[in-house]
Design a protein around this nucleic acid. Structure first.
Lengths: 126, 126
DNA sequence: GATTGCTTACGAATATAATCGTAATACAAT
DNA sequence: ATTGTATTACGATTATATTCGTAAGCAATC
């Protein structure tokens, strides 16, 4: 029964900030957005208001300056996007995605160790 | 000088079919799209025409029924989307993406072996 | 050569997303 | 109280994406 959740590009950018900070005001969010994008304050405000209408975020209105909180877990978004990506960009092959990621983006020794351990677990569980 | 390439959702669906088949007519593509989506033939046609205008695909017009060919490599799209995803959904952590993928999507023994080998290479190259 | 069926071209309508200006409101400082 | 500043609300505009109807071309078949 979980609704298909499908934020737009801009909404996802905002969500990613909210997941990071847990809770934030429009200004908090806007200041971060502004680092990478030339955009007015009211634009960010409006986007967050729309996200509120859609139920993507909730907000604490007890003080004048509202505080926004994401309405669902980052993990849910991760699952959805990773799945879609494996399907449309990697012909359904998980390992191709994994290898693309490892091949093109840095992972340190510790990270690699953790991955090896996960693989070991998966192999045992066969 | 490579332009930022940014296909829409629908365009990406079409591209993914073209990458799979290498070359295809509008009808070929439409028949596959139709399996998952209720949409008219001319809609698919129009989308592909627009993609042609944008330079996302080229086409062979020598016979009446045009044959479409993707204009750039799947790998380029993979790189771009994986990068964006690591950034917005995994706080910049490649290994988190990798572990999410391996944890939630099936990979067989052979796949896992290939990944282990890649990791070994990366470790050596330290 | 008329009819049928499949094709492309094209314009228009509709839907969705993103942007911002302006006004109203609250609150703090003078 | 008045002024200044930051906030929200809201409407309007613009941009972009999606959808499809209709017409025109072409080739095979009747």
């Amino acid at each position: 029964m979980s609704k298909t959740f499908k934020p737009t590009e801009s909404e996802l950018d905002i969500l990613s900030i909210l997941w990071e900070k847990q809770r934030a005001t429009v200004r908090d969010v806007h200041e971060i957005i502004q680092l990478t994008k030339e955009v007015g304050y009211t634009t960010t405000l409006k986007l967050m208001q729309i996200m509120h209408e859609k139920g993507l975020v909730s907000r604490d209105e007890s003080s004048k300056t509202h505080i926004y909180i994401p309405c669902f877990e980052k993990e849910k978004a991760q699952e959805q996007y990773v799945g879609k990506m494996i399907k449309t960009l990697f012909s359904g092959s998980t390992s191709q995605l994994v290898m693309q990621a490892l091949g093109h983006h840095h992972a340190n020794q510790e990270d690699l160790l953790a991955i090896k351990q996960l693989i070991a677990t998966l192999e045992k569980r066969k």
